[in-house]
Design a protein around this nucleic acid. Structure first.
Lengths: 230, 230
DNA sequence: CGAAATATGACAGTTTTATGACAGGCTGGA
DNA sequence: TCCAGCCTGTCATAAAACTGTCATATTTCG
């Protein structure tokens, strides 16, 4: 489950990118300025950032520099979107810390290729990763979940939800945070729907003896935790 | 538990904001003019102030300046609400000391994003904090309370109440101050209700060997304190 | 002792979450 | 293209959990 944050002040471009990325199986979040972007990065850390070079207010370059300066965010890969007129080479020389550049207008294929390349370089790619918690294993490469060796059949959404929980254990997430992380922002879905998916996931896990890991934190949200609370 | 003070002379706007903020998990207090605001700031220090720029009497700008001049309040982040006609740029130049500006009409999302951004900058964000007093730990990230490692189950209100006490120890609070801080102002609740919640919290803490920390100060209120008084 | 203030236990109304059912959408095949 | 079957988002409803208030004890203090 790779999450991509799209930062661009033009709604049309954001939407186009979101559409294309979603189609490729990425989860997208949008921000229309640097502030919103920072916000999104903190509440819902993406795996990669597509950043428009020109934006009103804090520009993409500034934001990139700032992110690269902060140790907490400096490993977040950034792909900068630049307009043709802006002289690629010159920009590259600016030492913004971006990991790659794409010149508008660009083809979707080209962008996707670069995204994959950057993700591969940053090691964030899904290949080969295996998450383990107790007897639960999530193999991202084969997209397979097993408990104690026994495979479990999960629907796509269940898989993403479990993946999210396993990679963010112990912390409470509100329903809307869960929606953002698992469904991607810019979807409008009833918050209660999260409950339903939680139930489905719980039922599946329970039927394999892996119960009580998804805990309800009343009036806050849910938490995935090994420590059973009494 | 982040508290936000909303200062605006129009009741409708105050209510709308209070509703939206409460929905996001903030505790809100309202004031309809600068005087009330100052009052509220002293009896119930907020973590952030939403301040209308135009108000009868002392305007938002004046109040902001005053707060920023006072060393005790100068670190309180302020977000100024301005009407469109008021020329953003000009206002920014006024050196009011506000930390950010939002132009009316604004979208709730935008406001929330800016609030989070400002809170983040001021380090007041809820994430990751862990409060400790003796063997009592409150982990805001996982929303978990433990005594000596043993988890305690608290209801939402109990959690907020304990959180408030632990972050404001060694000081007496009247029942109405407690109501303001834990329930938010603009709720109409019997003062005696505080007693009941205190009792519930005491009982829970006592059952885990953490008794006598919440002390009754007769005819004044309650105090959370390590130093047991005789 | 008597008034005032606080602690308690019980309770009913609310709020929040869990569940079961369902219909539209989508997918892969026929 | 059409169909069967799986996914999914939403509801209505049931089930829990939480809360605010009261009436009634207890305690405190002059």
């Amino acid at each position: 489950m790779v999450r991509i944050l799209v930062v661009d002040d033009e709604a049309a471009i954001r939407q186009m990118l979101a559409f294309a990325l979603t189609g490729e199986g990425y989860i997208t979040t949008e921000a229309c300025n640097a502030d919103q972007a920072q916000d999104a990065i903190h509440t819902n850390r993406p795996d990669l950032i597509l950043l428009d070079w020109m934006m009103p207010g804090l520009t993409g370059v500034d934001l990139a520099r700032r992110l690269k300066r902060n140790p907490e965010t400096k490993d977040l890969p950034i792909i900068m979107l630049t307009a043709r007129g802006e002289e690629h080479e010159k920009i590259k020389g600016l030492d913004t810390g971006a990991d790659d550049y794409v010149t508008k207008p660009f083809s979707i294929q080209e962008l996707m290729a670069r995204i994959r390349a950057v993700l591969r370089r940053s090691g964030k790619e899904k290949e080969g990763e295996i998450l383990v918690i107790d007897d639960l294993k999530i193999d991202l490469g084969t997209h397979r979940v097993t408990i104690n060796g026994q495979p479990i059949e999960l629907s796509p959404t269940e898989f993403r939800l479990l993946h999210f929980f396993v990679s963010h254990p112990e912390r409470v997430y509100s329903r809307s945070q869960i929606l953002d992380n698992v469904w991607g922002s810019n979807v409008y879905i009833e918050e209660r729907t999260v409950d339903v998916h939680i139930r489905r996931l719980r039922k599946l896990l329970a039927s394999h003896g892996f119960a009580d890991y998804i805990q309800t934190v009343r009036s806050v949200g849910y938490r995935f935790s090994k420590t059973i609370n009494e």
